[in-house]
Amino acid sequence: MNKVLFFAHLRDAVGAEYLTLDAGGKTVAELKDELVEKYDLPRMETVMTAINEEFASNDEVIRDGDEIAFIPPVSGG
């Protein structure tokens, strides 16, 4: 199983700080696609992904037990 954390407006869209789901074997892009379908998440293509607190590209493969975080870049200042 995987803990998937959401930051900023993604958390509002999902309605929870994190989800527990089985993403082992999927790529980051595949997980993003699945979540977009389920939760109507906006602009996931530019959202940064961390696997175990390390930056991960869209083609990285998630292993069972990895902690995933989705962090949207913001522009306010």
Partner: peptide
């Protein structure tokens, strides 16, 4: 919430 993401792989 607070998180720190290592960036060298980016």
């Amino acid at each position: 919430q607070y998180t720190s993401m290592k960036m060298s792989k980016a």
